[in-house]
Nucleic acid binder design. Structure first.
Lengths: 165, 165
DNA sequence: GAAAAGTAGCTTAGGAGTAAGCTACTTCTC
DNA sequence: GAGAAGTAGCTTACTCCTAAGCTACTTTTC
């Protein structure tokens, strides 16, 4: 007999324990929760950004430019490396964002192979508004279940775990 | 001046703090790490399952059937609900898995609208091998950076956080 | 300074997901 | 028990991603 499942992830682990008692299900519960939280927050943040007319992936591009500081200019190569996206995918995102007037492409004066991508004024406004809204939303969710000490503890453990990847 | 960044997520938070000192970046670091860990483990587990000829999504289907216990039979509807996939997506996955001989579809004797999806012997073998391999891999990663008490602490905090979603 | 190797960004083909809508069947309602 | 409403699974159209290969240009090597 297993303990009463406390959440859907525990329920899945209990099912496994019943049919495969030889398994150590702890790693599955840790990574299962991480996966579900990531996905749930992804959905919420997607909705939040949608209010500003951009997708999560588009936000990533704008945010990378914004936090690089003035003059808000990077190459497509730097952007695709930072956002963990292939260059093919980046071409498509830049096309959409350029068409929406949130950034512009111009030739790199020092390397005729390259381009420079620059955030427009409208792009800077939108990313500033959406990053604020997203952080506020995340803050509310966190505050609802963890106090400041717990959040710090969680962050420390996550930093350790991320270092293994 | 901010403290020396300890990982890429801290570096991003430090960049934001430099250009937008008004932001509270704590939620971003928590969810940023969760997102990156989820993605990194997703890539690793994908490779692990590939050794058995299946994708991560296909594993999810087989695993859901396997842990439901004998006779390893569920409806497409139950499968798409459990795996958080639309029915359209499930149709495609079942097509692939049926063609590979890992499961079979048969009419539901009690409801002529419905189907029953049943794990084949070959499917059961593959899911049993791959779940063992995946858990071992995850176990090694966890053991490399967290002791048992820390893992339990992390799991507790994650359970709390997941409950907010 | 010419050839070889490397790099930047784009294009194309293919995979896998969602959303909406379809047909067939079942359940509810009177 | 006939009509209305609901449900199961599939199909289609669309989106967005990756992987591989292209052209153009730069850097290294001899």
């Amino acid at each position: 007999m297993t303990a009463t499942p406390r959440d859907p992830v525990d329920a899945i682990a209990a099912q496994w324990a019943a049919v495969r008692p030889d398994l150590d299900t702890v790693p599955m519960t840790v990574y299962g929760r991480i996966y579900r939280i990531s996905r749930a927050m992804g959905d919420r943040i997607e909705k939040e950004y949608k209010r500003f007319g951009i997708s999560r992936g588009e936000f990533d591009v704008l945010a990378t430019l914004r936090r690089s500081g003035e003059p808000y200019t990077l190459s497509p190569r730097q952007l695709s490396a930072t956002t963990m996206l292939t260059t093919g995918g980046m071409t498509g995102r830049l096309d959409k964002l350029e068409k929406a007037g949130l950034l512009s492409r111009s030739p790199d004066p020092n390397d005729r192979r390259g381009l420079r991508v620059t955030l427009s004024e409208k792009g800077r406004e939108i990313v500033d508004e959406s990053v604020t809204a997203g952080l506020e939303m995340q803050h509310e969710v966190l505050d609802g279940v963890l106090d400041a000490a717990e959040a710090e503890q969680l962050n420390g453990l996550l930093r350790k775990l991320l270092s293994a990847h």
